[in-house]
Write a protein that binds this DNA or RNA. Structure first.
Lengths: 201, 201
DNA sequence: TTTCGCGTACCAAACGTTTGTTATGTATCT
DNA sequence: AGATACATAACAAACGTTTGGTACGCGAAA
């Protein structure tokens, strides 16, 4: 029984267990008893650190958010489009860990669709992700890697949509979307963006 | 009390109520009592027509599938890319009804992620959607609207991913993704595909 | 024509289980 | 001694499912 007396660390332990249950069972299978069992503890421990399930979930999502942002990222091998490529590959379920993380977020959408507070959280999460793509799009525009008349906001939304859409397909059909193909699809998408506009009619 | 004695019609009524509850509360909020209340009936009615909740959900999804395939579609204003455009716009949440339908399917992902049978259903559903996009991609290739060396399977997967990714963004952020912008984004995406390959380095 | 028997359709209620939450007890630290 | 950190147990509510019963429709028997 580690970290006895370390309040914050214990809360993080609990959040980690919440995350693991979510990855295994989705939001529909997230119960206090399942979390407690995963920790080898009792529900009393959970209520000792969190006043309610909602507070628990809220904190777990915050921790997950930090974890998502803090984890290792593919180094951008260049400015502009190469950076965009790296940012997209960064969210793809290329590893089991990343797949588990994506499963949680996709599962989260169900909960968010019928809970205003969670919906707001999801909205902010999406904004944050687009904000991560945006610098690369801006740089690509500046470097002339994209048509000068393109709308950066629209490009970011398109890239974000493409990425998440690919994530969902890969989650449900890993056989048809192995890592190599995911990478290839991202590369082809980047190449698509890089093409020069159709010269004439 | 209509349709007494009409077994199949009654089952369809039940499925419709299931669908409405799903649209309102998501899979997490789908309970027999909620379905019964929506119908103004008792849970006994539900179990009379379906042996279990799982069977009920299964049938509701089948009905929904037929409904999805049978509804009005935007006419393809041309072969190839215009057809692809129409097919993509067809799934976008441009109307409240379409938004409700998309909410159900996105919500469904959570349930499918932790249930093998539902996961298989979702896999088939995705295949079906890609199959709807494929003829248009093939036609576009045939008509020279796309680079001849492009892989049709990859193009279809890319378009499907883009479409669903856009759906999710629009569902959670309708203010930032009003119908006009959704249409514009689809148009720009089609235009992206239509561009000629970059002539030289 | 009436009446009986029986299957279908459905409601109301209750079943056992699981849920989130709360109360109580008991070590362990300060 | 008193606060902290839990486990244990109980709680009401909600869940899917089961049960007992009522009302109805209809072919066969009287």
């Amino acid at each position: 029984m580690p970290a006895r007396g370390d309040h914050d660390a214990r809360r993080r332990d609990v959040s980690q267990a919440v995350w693991e249950v979510l990855a295994a069972n989705g939001f529909g299978g997230l119960t206090l008893r399942a979390v407690a069992a995963r920790m080898g503890a009792s529900t009393g421990l959970l209520t000792h650190y969190f006043p309610s399930k909602k507070a628990l979930v809220r904190h777990a999502l915050e921790v997950a958010q930090e974890h998502t942002q803090g984890r290792d990222r593919l180094p951008a091998e260049g400015e502009g489009l190469p950076g965009l490529r790296a940012a997209l590959l960064d969210v793809m379920p290329l590893t089991p860990e990343s797949a588990a993380m994506n499963r949680v977020w996709v599962s989260f959408w169900d909960a968010a669709l019928s809970d205003d507070e969670l919906a707001a959280t999801e909205l902010r999460r999406y904004e944050r992700w687009r904000d991560m793509l945006r610098p690369h799009v801006d740089a690509a525009l500046r470097l002339g890697q994209l048509p000068a008349d393109a709308d950066p906001d629209d490009l970011v939304a398109t890239a974000a949509g493409f990425g998440h859409g690919l994530v969902v397909q890969a989650l449900f059909d890993p056989a048809r979307f192995p890592p190599e193909r995911q990478i290839r699809l991202v590369d082809d998408f980047i190449a698509l963006l890089a093409r020069r506009p159709h010269p004439t009619g």
